[in-house]
Design a protein around this nucleic acid. Structure first.
Length: 848
RNA sequence: GCGAGCGUGGUGGAAUAGGUAGACACAUGAGACUUAAAAUCUCAAGCCCUUAUUGGGCGUGGGGGUUCAAGUCCCCCCGCUCGUACCA
C-alpha cells in the first residue's frame, strides 16, 4: 500500500485540470448560472492565510454549485493599483509596475498550488491600460451626466514632503516619514455624486435578503438618513446668519448656544479680525481629517462674542461658539446646543458654564433636574411656549410648522453620507482623463484618445505628486483649441477599480466590459465572499457604481451582489523572546505547556492570540504548509474548526489533526480493491446494512444543508461522523462491500469541494472511470431518512430527569402517561403535577 | 467618541423557530501493539460534591428580568474585534 503523498496527487490533478481546461466556462443559456466571487487581492507579493481562507470558501462553493448542475463562473484578478507599490518605489528604488508585476506572478503561482477552480482566461489586473481604459470611459460618462464633478476638499498636508497624506500615514498628528506636524489644507478634487443615490442605496438594502444583517445595518447607519429641520439664526452684531440642521427642533426653547465648525464660512470670516479666534481655528487645523481622531480629541470651543437671535424669542441672545468637534461635512456644519437633552451638548455647556434649560419632562407640568446625564427619552414639552404639553413627536412637527410660518426654517432630510472623493495625488493609480486649458477650462479627454496611460518613466526623488512633476507627460495640447494645456495629475482612488471589476470578469474577450449579452447572463454576482472590513466602503461604492451605470442606461440591473458572506480573520498565538522581540511561530516548539526556541532552547513568552500580522510575526506561511501537508489538508483545516464569519485560530495541532484524518481515509480506501465491486445502488435488507445506508443519507442531508447555510465546520464534522460510521461497519461478504463502496463513494463526492485533489484520486481508486469534478451531487432518498421511534427527554420543572423511546406521533395524553411512570422521573413527582407540557416529538416538561 | 459584531469545557467549536448544553475535533490521561520510541488502535473525560452510582448540585463573560422552559428574548455592565470616508 502506498502512503498518502499529496505532492504527487496534487500536481497530477492540477495538470489534468489545466490540460483539460476544466474550469473554463462560457455563457450557456440551457443551464442555470452561478457567479461566485471572492474579493480580489492587492498583490502584496505573498498570499497569506486570510487569502487561503477566503479562496477556499469560494472554491468550495464553486465546486459544490457545479456538482449541483450550475454553470459556474469563478474568476480571479488583481487589485493592483495602490500606495504600497509607491512606497516600495521610494524605499527600494524599484518601479511600481515592475514591483507589482513580480508580486502578481509570485502570488499567482502560489494560488495555483491551492487547486482553486478559477477560469484563469478571465484574469484581470487593474493597473493595466486594458483594464483602466474602460473606467476612464465610465468616468467621462459620469462627467457628462453630472455624476462626476470637481470641488474643494480638506486633505492632510505634510509641509515637509509637500504631499497629501492618507489617514494611515498620519501618526499622532505627524507625517509618518517626515515627522512634521500635519495640517489640514483645502485642495481641489474630483467627486462622484453618490449622495444623489442616498435614498436608493438605503431603500434597496431591504431587497438584499441574502446579505448579513450586520452589514446592512452598518450601511444604513453610514448613509444616516435623518429627518429634521434647517433653522436660520440671525446674527446680532453683524448682518449675517447661520443655518443649523437639527433632528430635534422641538427642543428649540432649550437652545443655549450655537456651535460652528472651525471651517465654517462664518468662522473664516470673523477670524480675520480677531487674533484669539484665528489662533483657535489655526490650532484645530493641526489634526488629521480622520473622524476617529477628531472625535477622540478633547472637545473644546471658543466664544466668538457674537450672538444669535432665538427665532421665537427675539429678546433671547444665544452665544455663538466655534467648536473643534463640529464636522463641516455634516449637515450645515453648525448646530444649536440644547444641553438638557443631548449628552455632548451638556458636557459642552458644563465646560463653558452655559445655561441648561430642560424642555422635555417625563410627564406634563413637572420639572426635570439635569445633573450629569442629559434627558434623551420620550416625554412631554415644558418651558416651551406654544409647544408645551405636546409629546416630542408632535412638538417636532409643530415646531417645523411654526418655523416655516415665520420664515425661519424648513423641514429637511439630511444624510450623513458625503460625496465620494476620488482624487488621489499619487502616481500609481488610474489617470483621471481631464485636461485643463486656460481658454476652454475643464476639457474631457476625447474617447478616441483613451486610455490616458501612465508615463513609464517617473521619478520619486522630488517632493509632491510625481505626475505633477513630470512635465513631459503633463503638458499637452487642448483637445478643443490646441493651445498648451495641462493634464489632470490626480489619479483615482483604488476603490474606483474595485467598484466594477466583477462586471469585467464577464467579458472574456476584452471588447466591451458592459456588453449586454454576457453581462446580463452572469450578473449579478450570486455569492460574494470577503472580509467584514469592506462592509461599508467597497460594498457601498460598488452598489453606487451599478446604480449610476444603470441611471445612464449602461446596464439593466441595480444591485451587484445578490448574496454576501463575510469571513473572520485568521489569528495565531504571538511569541516574544527574553528581549521582548517578536518571534515567528516556525522558530518555536511546544513542550509541557511551554514554548521554546529551536535554535537555543530558550524559553519563549507566549502572548495573546491575535490577527496574523507581519509586525507581530505571528504569521504562518501558506507555502510552507502546502509544501509540508499539501493543499487539501490546508483547505480541510481552514474550514474545519470555525464557522467562516468568525475569527479562527491557526494551530499546528489542528493542521496535524486534518492531516491525520486524510491519512486515515487514504489508508482505509487502500485496504480493499473496489475496482470490481458493483457501484449500482441496491436496497439493503439486513439491519446493519440498513443502518449504514440510513446514516449515509442522514449525513448527505446534513452536509448539503450545512453547505447551503455556509456552515462548513459542521459539514466537516458530519463528514468525519460518516467516516467513523463506515470505519466501524462490519463487513465480511461481497454484498456488504457494495454498501461500503456506496457509502464511501458518497463520502468522496461530499468531500470533493473541500479536498478536490484527494477526492479525484480516491474516486479513481474506487474504480470509477469518469472525472469526479463532473459527478452530480447526491440526491436524497427520503425513505432512508424516516425513523419510527423517537427518544424524547423528560423534564421536571425544567430540569432533565429522564427520557423515553416512543413511537412517533403518539397523542399528548399517551406520551404524558408514559412519562410520569418513568422511574427516574417518578421519584421527583412527590406532589401531583400541576401541568404537563408536551411539545410533540420534542420534549415533555412536568411542572409540580 | 460614534456605528457594528463577538464572548459556550483545558482548546477550536456544536445546539432547526425558546425545548436533552458540550456534536465533531484538538490537547490530556490510561491501556494495546513495540526491545524502545514514533506512528496507529481502544477507552476515559465540563466543574464540584458524593454512599463512587443507574445519586445530587453548579454551569454558556458578569448582574438582573420575561417564560412551564433561556446559550438563544429584554435591560444594565465588562472584555475583545472591525469600520470611522486618502490602507486595501
Amino acid at each position: 500500500m502506498k502512503k498518502y503523498n499529496p505532492k504527487i496527487i496534487e500536481q497530477k490533478w492540477q495538470k489534468v485540470w489545466e490540460d483539460d481546461k476544466t474550469f473554463s466556462v462560457l455563457v450557456d443559456h440551457d443551464k442555470p448560472k452561478f457567479y461566485v466571487l471572492e474579493m480580489f487581492p492587492y498583490p502584496s507579493g505573498d498570499i497569506h492565510m486570510g487569502h487561503v481562507r477566503n479562496y477556499t470558501l469560494g472554491d468550495l462553493m464553486a465546486r459544490y454549485k457545479h456538482a449541483k448542475g450550475f454553470n459556474v463562473l469563478h474568476p480571479m484578478g488583481w487589485d493592483s493599483f495602490g500606495l504600497p507599490a509607491e512606497n516600495a518605489a521610494i524605499e527600494n528604488e524599484i518601479h511600481p509596475r515592475k514591483w507589482t508585476l513580480s508580486n502578481i506572478s509570485k502570488m499567482k503561482s502560489q494560488l495555483k498550488k491551492m487547486g482553486l477552480s478559477y477560469d484563469w482566461k478571465r484574469e484581470l489586473s487593474t493597473c493595466e491600460p486594458e483594464y483602466y481604459k474602460h473606467e476612464q470611459k465610465m468616468f467621462l460618462d459620469f462627467y457628462k451626466n453630472k455624476i462626476a464633478y470637481r470641488k474643494e476638499t480638506w486633505v492632510n498636508w505634510d509641509p515637509i514632503e509637500q504631499t497629501v497624506l492618507a489617514n494611515e500615514q498620519v501618526i499622532d498628528g505627524k507625517g509618518w516619514r517626515s515627522g512634521a506636524l500635519v495640517e489640514k489644507r483645502k485642495m481641489n478634487g474630483w467627486f462622484l455624486k453618490i449622495t444623489d443615490f442616498s435614498n436608493e442605496l438605503l431603500d434597496e438594502l431591504k431587497q438584499l435578503h441574502n446579505w448579513p444583517e450586520k452589514v446592512k445595518i452598518m450601511q444604513k447607519n453610514w448613509i444616516g438618513k435623518s429627518v429634521g429641520a434647517i433653522i436660520k439664526f440671525e446674527v446680532n452684531e453683524i448682518n449675517d446668519h447661520i443655518e443649523v440642521f437639527s433632528t430635534r427642533p422641538d427642543t428649540i426653547f432649550g437652545a443655549s448656544f450655537i456651535a460652528i465648525s472651525p471651517q465654517h464660512p462664518f468662522a473664516i470670516k470673523i477670524m480675520e479680525k480677531n487674533e484669539k479666534i484665528k489662533d483657535f481655528v489655526n490650532k484645530t487645523n493641526f489634526t488629521s481629517t480622520s473622524e476617529a481622531e477628531i472625535e477622540k480629541n478633547e472637545k473644546i470651543g471658543i466664544d466668538t462674542n457674537f450672538t444669535a437671535n432665538h427665532p421665537f424669542n427675539k429678546s433671547k441672545k444665544i452665544p455663538i461658539f466655534i467648536a473643534n468637534f463640529i464636522l463641516i461635512d455634516y449637515g450645515s456644519g453648525a448646530i444649536f446646543g440644547c444641553p438638557a437633552h443631548d449628552q455632548r451638548d451638556l458636557d459642552f455647556a458644563r465646560k463653558y458654564k452655559l445655561e441648561i434649560l430642560p424642555v422635555v419632562a417625563k410627564f406634563a407640568n413637572t420639572t426635570v433636574k439635569i445633573n450629569k446625564k442629559a434627558y434623551t427619552d420620550e416625554g412631554i414639552m415644558i418651558n416651551s411656549e406654544f409647544l408645551n404639553n405636546l409629546n416630542v413627536n408632535d412638538a417636532i412637527n409643530k415646531s417645523i410648522e411654526k418655523l416655516e410660518e415665520i420664515g425661519a426654517g424648513k423641514k429637511n432630510i439630511n444624510f450623513r453620507l458625503r460625496d465620494w472623493g476620488v482624487s488621489r495625488q499619487r502616481y500609481w493609480g488610474c489617470p483621471i482623463p481631464i485636461i485643463y486649458c486656460d481658454k476652454c477650462g475643464e476639457v474631457p479627454v476625447p474617447v478616441k484618445d483613451l486610455p490616458v496611460k501612465l508615463p513609464e518613466s517617473i521619478s520619486f526623488d522630488k517632493t509632491g505628486n510625481p505626475l505633477s512633476n513630470n512635465k513631459k507627460w503633463k503638458i499637452v495640447d487642448c483637445p478643443k483649441c490646441k493651445s498648451k494645456s495641462v493634464r489632470e495629475t490626480d489619479t483615482f482612488d483604488t476603490f474606483f477599480e474595485s467598484s466594477w471589476y466583477f462586471a469585467k470578469f464577464t467579458d472574456e474577450k476584452n471588447n466591451d466590459p458592459l456588453s449586454k449579452s454576457s453581462l446580463n447572463y452572469w450578473l449579478p454576482v450570486d455569492l460574494y465572499i470577503g472580509g467584514i472590513e469592506h462592509a461599508v466602503l467597497h460594498l457601498l461604492y460598488s452598489r453606487f457604481f451599478i446604480k449610476a451605470l444603470n441611471k445612464i442606461n449602461q446596464i439593466e440591473f441595480k444591485e451587484p451582489f445578490s448574496s454576501l458572506q463575510t469571513q473572520g480573520m485568521v489569528c495565531h498565538r504571538t511569541f516574544k523572546n527574553k528581549k521582548g522581540e517578536w518571534i515567528f511561530p516556525k522558530d518555536v516548539y511546544h513542550e509541557n505547556n511551554n514554548y521554546y526556541l529551536f535554535s537555543n532552547n530558550e524559553l519563549v513568552h507566549s502572548g495573546r492570540i491575535e490577527k496574523m500580522s507581519k509586525s507581530k510575526k505571528n504569521v504562518i506561511d501558506p507555502n510552507i504548509i502546502i509544501e509540508k501537508y499539501g493543499a487539501d489538508t490546508a483547505r480541510f483545516f481552514i474550514l474545519s474548526d470555525s464557522p467562516p464569519e468568525r475569527d479562527m485560530e491557526w494551530t499546528e495541532s489542528g493542521v496535524d489533526g486534518s492531516w491525520r484524518f486524510l491519512n486515515k481515509l487514504w489508508n482505509f480506501l487502500n485496504k480493499e480493491d473496489y475496482n470490481n465491486i458493483d457501484s449500482k445502488f441496491i436496497h439493503p435488507s439486513e439491519k446493519k446494512d440498513i443502518e449504514l445506508i440510513k446514516f449515509t443519507y442522514k449525513m448527505i442531508k446534513n452536509i448539503t444543508k450545512s453547505i447551503d447555510n455556509f456552515h462548513f465546520n459542521i459539514a466537516i464534522a458530519s463528514i468525519r461522523s460518516l467516516f467513523n460510521e463506515i470505519n466501524s461497519y462490519e463487513c465480511n461478504s461481497n454484498l456488504c462491500l457494495v454498501f461500503k463502496k456506496f457509502s464511501l463513494s458518497q463520502l468522496i463526492i461530499l468531500l470533493n469541494p473541500i479536498c478536490p485533489h484527494f477526492c479525484e484520486e480516491a474516486w479513481e481508486k474506487l474504480g470509477y472511470k469518469t472525472k469526479l469534478f463532473n459527478q452530480k451531487w447526491p440526491e436524497i432518498r427520503s425513505k432512508y431518512l424516516l425513523d419510527d421511534k423517537i427518544l424524547i427527554p423528560i423534564q421536571v420543572n425544567g430540569k432533565k430527569r429522564g427520557e423515553i423511546l416512543v413511537e412517533k406521533n403518539l397523542t399528548e395524553n399517551q406520551v404524558s402517561q408514559l412519562a410520569v411512570k418513568q422511574p427516574s422521573v417518578e421519584k421527583f413527582l412527590l406532589k401531583k403535577p400541576s401541568k404537563i407540557i408536551v411539545i410533540p416529538n420534542r420534549i415533555i416538561n412536568i411542572v409540580v
